[in-house]
Simulated assay, not measured.
Amino acid sequence: MIGLGFVYLVAGSFFAACAILGAADRRWGNALFHALLAVSFFFGDRIGDVGNGVLVLALVAVATSGRMRRGEPVEPTSPQGPLLALALVIPAAALGGTLLFKQVPALVDPGQVTLVALAVGVLLALALCWLILRRTPVEGVRAGRRLLDEIGWAAVMPQLLASLGAVFALAGVGEVVGGLVGGAIPDGSVLGATIAYGLGMALFTVVMGNAFAAFPVMAAAVGIPLLVRHYGGDPAPVAAIGMLAGFCGTLLTPMAANFNIVPAALLELKDRYGVIRAQAATALPLLLFNILLLWWVIR
């Protein structure tokens, strides 16, 4: 059965290729950083908690050493028509594969169909680029490595912050927050619980920089005990709409550096928070819409 092992193999192979290309260009800091990521994908389930902890500390040490260099400048080229269509192959394959693989549960792990379909989409897009544009997969890896070099250590910030959310959940932060929120919500108020959940997802995301980090806390505090168990809400929309509310917070925080600060630096914007200011007009109405949508679904 195809599962996360396949996804980790694809991701690990990409980072290993980036490490080799970086070493060939004598970009030693970048090469070591990518090599450590490759090790985590290839052997993370074999080296244990201590080994993974040491690996994360090594990643932090490399990232803060100042040895990582930005990507090399690229000469501008005229846009090519097929590029957009080929880029859309990845989300199309992820959606189509998710629907298809669910029909054959013996082929793909039912809990990982989307990730497997996404990895298949990446490989399919690379193959089509080779056939249509006559560009080898190595050129695709080179372009991906150049983008990673531009982003730097912030490329792994979502994973680090998501791990922080899991740590907070295991430490019982969700229960503490739930006790405080529960005392402030009027008894029997579905709207109050919905507002607390949606607003809490956005605010925790603003603080932590990642909706995946905020979700374990707010799900344990409000989502599961109140919206699902007490008011009988369907867990699927509670989780999905809650994440959308959290993503509204992502649009508003410099903590989401890979989304909001790195693009401003790459585009050389004079206003370092220009991306956030531009997104606020979308994030706030969208947050309100998500809260009302969830209230309508549950009531």
Rank of each mutant, 00 (worst) to 15 (best):
P110S: 06
P110G: 08
G111L: 14
V113W: 03
T114G: 11
T114N: 13
V116I: 10
V116N: 04
A117I: 10
L118E: 01
L118D: 00
L118M: 13
L118I: 10
L118Q: 05
A119V: 02
A119F: 00
A119Q: 00
V120K: 12
G121N: 05
V122Q: 11
L123W: 14
L126V: 13
W130I: 11
L131R: 15
L133Q: 09
L133D: 08
R134N: 12
R135C: 09
E139M: 15
G140V: 05
V141T: 08
V141H: 03
R142G: 13
R142C: 12
G144F: 05
R145L: 10
R146Y: 05
L147I: 11
G152A: 09
G152F: 04
A155C: 07
L160R: 07
L161K: 10
A162H: 06
G165C: 01
G165S: 05
F168D: 01
A169G: 00
L170I: 05
A171T: 14
G172C: 04
G172D: 01
G172F: 05
V173A: 15
V173E: 06
V173R: 12
V176N: 09
V176Y: 15
V177A: 02
G178T: 08
G179T: 10
V181W: 10
V181C: 07
G182H: 04
G182L: 01
G183A: 09
P186D: 08
G188R: 08
G188D: 03
G188E: 01
S189N: 04
S189F: 05
V190L: 08
G192H: 05
G192N: 04
T194H: 03
T194W: 01
A196Q: 08
G200R: 06
M201K: 08
M201S: 10
A202S: 12
T205G: 11
V207I: 14
V207R: 03
F212E: 00
A213N: 01
A214V: 04
P216W: 09
P216S: 08
P216T: 06
M218S: 01
A219Y: 14
A220Q: 14
A221I: 07
V222W: 01
I224N: 03
I224L: 07
P225T: 09
L227Y: 03
V228R: 13
V228L: 11
D234M: 01
P235M: 05
A236M: 15
A236W: 14
P237M: 09
P237Y: 13
P237K: 12
P237A: 10
V238W: 00
A240P: 04
G242M: 02
M243I: 15
M243R: 11
L244V: 14
A245P: 10
